[in-house]
Write a protein that binds this DNA or RNA. Structure first.
Lengths: 201, 201
DNA sequence: TCAGAGTCTGACCGATCGGTCAAGTAGGCT
DNA sequence: AGCCTACTTGACCGATCGGTCAGACTCTGA
């Protein structure tokens, strides 16, 4: 079956491996994840992994690349739409949706972004994150303003991806994604929307 | 020199190794840090590292244990002091000071807390973090309230430790610690102080 | 002078790492 | 039938991992 059509019979091996790898990378870390372990978990041999992905790094690229693409697109749209309150509001909503839809990938490159120097896909992620910080907040803004943005973005990302893993583990089975989305958008709006001058409060 | 007195002549080898290890653990991660690399960086042999610390795990314990002790103490004082506005305000200040004084250690166990299951000192850190979240916010609080606390604490920690490493890298040489402290306390107060009822706004 | 504790090191161990390679299998095409 | 492509695998490689161990080099106190 050389075409990339539905192939309804079975899950593509490469997809399966990519998913298992993403879970490993996000939970125990890229460095601690071994190809052998990933292969075992997915029910293949290590050689098969290296057949579908030419290296461990290529596997990482396949696992988190799409999420970084999405983040870059999100960022591009935001800088193109200006800094109006409406643009900020829409950005916040899309950002939260991005986080919710890419928890594992975000967890991976947020938590290990500084730990893996020289890996191209990680550099791309770091550049995107830096661009995010730069675009939402002018460099000449007061420090407390910058801090507000940093806390909002990092806090949102970390609360969702890591908080979901161990902060709320146990005491909250799993909150409805819609509820989480609404709550997160509310908190982020509170921090980011007034933006200049702190009109409220 | 069997006593633990000043020993002014030279830095204690074990201290030097602990510091180098902490830097490695926090920047490239525990799993990716090798005893060989740590030893090279500190100017010792791998055997010397294993003389002073019986295992890689013991080295991790020595590197981040004191910070976890401080966090536990901070947490204990806070739960003992009640939830009044004054207690919260003091807690925020002490929490920020804790973050500022233990950047590398916090970076290590915040970012890798879920990646290193079974390591006692990490379990201790995770328990402390969970206790922190539980104590500052009742379990029956509305989701948006919980989210606010999560964003505040995680955002503050991440902004300081990781943000300092790569978010602001380059465009801000190094902000005065006092300024950072003030800005961070301001943002956290805004998020956490009203606490119940959201009287403002 | 000798004994002994404290420190440092190289040689070495088994295990595992990421990665290569040749062989083998199964299915579709002519 | 034959061939080709896609896929899977075990054997194997050099490097590196955490860790052990037996020496060797101080320095101190008797």
């Amino acid at each position: 079956m050389p075409t990339d059509a539905p192939t309804p019979s079975r899950v593509r091996a490469s997809d399966e491996l990519r998913q298992v790898a993403l879970e490993q990378f996000s939970t125990i870390g890229f460095a601690a994840s071994s190809l052998q372990h990933i292969a075992d978990q997915a029910g293949y041999s290590k050689s098969s992994v290296l057949y579908h992905y030419s290296s461990k790094e290529a596997l990482l690229e396949a696992a988190i690349g799409p999420a970084i693409d999405a983040l870059e697109a999100l960022l591009g749209d935001f800088v193109a739409s200006g800094r109006s309150v409406e643009a900020r509001a829409e950005f916040i909503e899309r950002f939260v949706d991005f986080l919710l839809g890419n928890r594992l990938a975000v967890h991976t490159f947020v938590n290990q972004g500084q730990s893996l120097p020289g890996v191209p896909v990680i550099e791309r992620a770091n550049t995107a994150i830096r661009g995010l910080a730069d675009s939402i907040c002018e460099a000449d803004a007061p420090l407390s303003e910058q801090m507000r943005f940093g806390v909002a973005l990092a806090g949102a990302a970390y609360t969702l991806v890591a908080g979901a893993t161990f902060l709320e583990q146990g005491r909250r089975a799993e909150a409805d994604d819609a509820d989480v989305r609404a709550a997160l958008i509310s908190v982020l709006s509170e921090l980011l929307i007034p933006a200049d001058g702190r009109t409220t409060r």
